[in-house]
Design a protein around this nucleic acid. Structure first.
Lengths: 271, 271
DNA sequence: CAAATAGTGTCTCTAAGACAATATCAC
DNA sequence: GTGATATTGTCTTAGAGACACTATTTG
């Protein structure tokens, strides 16, 4: 028997198979005006959530996502699902882990490929797709508390979803999060969001994805605000500018009409 | 209708599903004696490959791996498959990407969760499992060449598997490898090995996984050799010792009978 | 002018890398 | 003693962080 005849007789149907999905934590910055004409808007990290219109977890909030189709990669699936459910096109796609615990989905054996994703300021006008009752941006805070637990807080106007997570290490030292209390979040999505933020922060540290949050041209202060919002830190401008200098190129353009000194616009240094 | 009755009527069988596998690049160090009683053995990074006993790719070399079973996570699947096929138990398991291109497997729609894994010196006596015709450790070199391409060379005694890969960036800037010429490696395993080595090197840089290559107690020179073998670099001992000092704890034991000054044994600093 | 942000200069401290020097064992 | 590795010390340089200072705009 040769390979060709082996393959013609081979039936993949003989084995039980799981369903495969992608879930995507889409991040953007929300700009909050503070009523003072000369003060810059403050920036908050926010994540896109869908209110589930169908069972299971009907009425609860969840990440956009859906089933992998034949002929597409998990990355293509992620982009398609984001667009179908929220009419938003992402600028980046960062693997955030595979979630495959046997009982993570009440519908059955379903494993999820998680991604963190970023869209710029301009494109953030989500429309709810067919399956979703609502789509909203939620402000994100994710912090370690004094008791060693992590608190994930998602806020949208009057709605507040709070989860408490433990950091766990498996036998191989891999760190992940386990939700002790997941608030009104569907499935294991609190854990996926926690992993996504961790991955996002790791990359923001080396200026890896901060550019995706901004238009082509931006001021260094804006860029600094992005990093600060993602990582929940505050940096001294002089030091930030020194560190970022190799990653950006200056243009001849400046901001205008802000009630204070204009700022030079920069572009990313694509090296 | 409530959630319970929704779930009782829900049939996951209505959707077409892929098969899901794990493939694991198991790494260890091979010690090469060089015939001089006072000289330390040199260390080479090696990866465990299986000679396929069945179609497809019968007779070619492949990574150990296999199908995900119901009730296990992808990590558990990886550990089980390594043990079944090679009788080896890994010390670490590092996600190295999800490979889901539609035609990556001639048997059909099969997506693979790749892992890089490490086993210590002691446990490296592989036995071939049922499906495998042979199991061998291959010395690994993986380098960027002058023409910008990457060369993956796997050597075991007289056998030499050479692959040439291009570094590709997808629309979102994610870097992966595409095999131009994959030698005698089955499936897309050249690409998986390339991604695994990249991930391994990234972690070795922060001393993240170098301890897994050694027994509990080790000398600092051994530890340095591990990092050098993985990353294909050479470091000045004085500088390595300073950098590693926070990650290790000294013991009162020393090596003996090596034909040169004894070395203090250290343990990992589990903090 | 006042308020706010933009941008520069400088000091300190740490860490990385290069390199030299000394210590200790087995034969 | 010789040849090998083990271990420590020192010099230089690059970079991070803290902080003070100057520059520029709009109402």
């Amino acid at each position: 028997m040769d390979e060709k005849s082996f393959l013609s007789e081979y039936s993949i149907e003989n084995y039980e198979r799981p369903s495969v999905t992608t879930d995507i934590a889409v991040f953007a910055l929300r700009y909050e005006e503070n009523g003072n004409y000369r003060q810059n808007s403050s920036k908050k990290l926010s994540v896109l959530l869908i209110k589930r219109g169908e069972y299971p977890y009907k009425g609860m909030w969840a990440l956009p996502g859906g089933f992998l189709r034949k002929g597409e990669t998990v990355e293509e699936c992620a982009v398609r699902e984001i667009f179908e459910e929220t009419s938003v096109k992402p600028l980046s796609l960062i693997p955030a882990g595979v979630f495959s615990k046997p009982n993570r989905d009440p519908r059955g054996w379903i494993i999820s490929n998680a991604f963190a994703s970023v869209i710029g300021k301009a494109e953030k006008n989500p429309k709810a797709g067919d399956d979703a009752a609502d789509v909203q941006w939620f402000d994100v805070t994710f912090e370690k508390e004094n008791n060693g637990k992590y608190c994930l807080k998602l806020v949208c106007k009057d709605k507040e979803l709070v989860s408490s997570l433990n950091e766990t290490k498996d036998a191989f030292g891999k760190i992940s999060f386990e939700a002790e209390e997941k608030g009104k979040l569907a499935f294991d999505h609190a854990e996926i969001i926690a992993s996504s933020i961790t991955e996002l922060r790791r990359r923001a540290k080396n200026f890896d994805i901060i550019f995706d949050f901004l238009p082509d041209k931006f001021t260094l202060t804006e860029l600094q605000n992005v990093q600060e919002a993602i990582m929940n830190i505050s940096v001294t401008p002089a030091n930030f500018r020194r560190k970022i200098s190799g990653y950006v190129v200056e243009t001849d353009e400046y901001t205008q009409g802000d009630g204070h000194r204009p700022a030079r616009l920069y572009k990313r240094n694509n090296l």
